[in-house]
Amino acid sequence: MSFAEAFDLPLCIDLRTAARAFGVCPGTAYKLIRLGRFPCPVLRVGWHYRIPTAYLLSALGIEERPVYADDLESGAAHAAQLHNTTHY
């Protein structure tokens, strides 16, 4: 998994995606969970495992997401639009 793919992940991911990020097969990931040795916290939701992306990135040594100029510009434009609609 590339850095760009890691930064585009949703808030929570499935076990297959997390296994790919760590470079292990899904079978190994399930085994690590059963042994309590998966590299980050895992949530059990019904019959499925979910991994919060923040924990995954932290376990991979990625503490902060990069900020891009486009993100700042679109965020500033959105904030300005909100400001203009809330003032009378």
Rank of each mutant, 00 (worst) to 15 (best):
M1Y: 02
M1H: 04
F3T: 07
E5Q: 10
A6M: 12
F7T: 08
F7D: 10
F7Y: 12
L9S: 04
L11F: 05
L11M: 13
C12A: 14
D14E: 10
D14T: 06
L15A: 03
R16A: 14
R16I: 11
R16K: 13
T17R: 03
T17F: 02
A18C: 15
A18F: 00
A18V: 03
A18N: 04
A19C: 09
A19S: 11
R20V: 06
R20I: 07
R20Y: 04
R20D: 13
R20S: 13
A21V: 10
A21L: 11
A21R: 03
A21D: 01
A21S: 10
F22L: 09
F22N: 07
G23C: 08
V24K: 02
V24H: 03
P26H: 08
G27L: 11
T28Q: 15
T28F: 09
T28G: 10
A29N: 01
L32A: 11
I33E: 05
I33Q: 04
R34F: 01
L35S: 14
G36D: 05
G36T: 07
R37W: 02
F38K: 01
F38C: 01
P39R: 03
P39A: 08
P39L: 02
C40E: 01
V42S: 03
L43W: 04
R44F: 00
G46N: 07
W47E: 11
W47P: 03
H48E: 14
H48R: 15
Y49W: 09
Y49V: 06
Y49K: 04
R50V: 06
R50F: 04
R50C: 05
R50K: 15
I51R: 00
I51E: 02
P52G: 05
P52W: 02
Y55D: 14
Y55N: 12
L56V: 07
L57Q: 06
S58T: 11
S58Y: 00
A59C: 10
L60Y: 07
L60K: 01
G61T: 04
G61H: 05
I62A: 08
I62P: 00
E63Q: 13
E63I: 07
E63G: 14
E64W: 10
R65T: 10
R65N: 04
R65M: 09
V67P: 00
V67A: 08
D70T: 08
D71P: 00
L72N: 03
E73A: 13
E73W: 06
E73N: 07
S74D: 08
G75H: 03
G75Q: 06
G75T: 06
A77H: 11
H78Y: 09
H78W: 06
A79C: 09
A80I: 10
A80D: 13
A80N: 12
Q81H: 14
L82C: 11
L82R: 13
T85Y: 11
T86F: 12
T86K: 15
T86Q: 15
T86Y: 12
H87P: 02
Y88D: 15
Y88L: 14
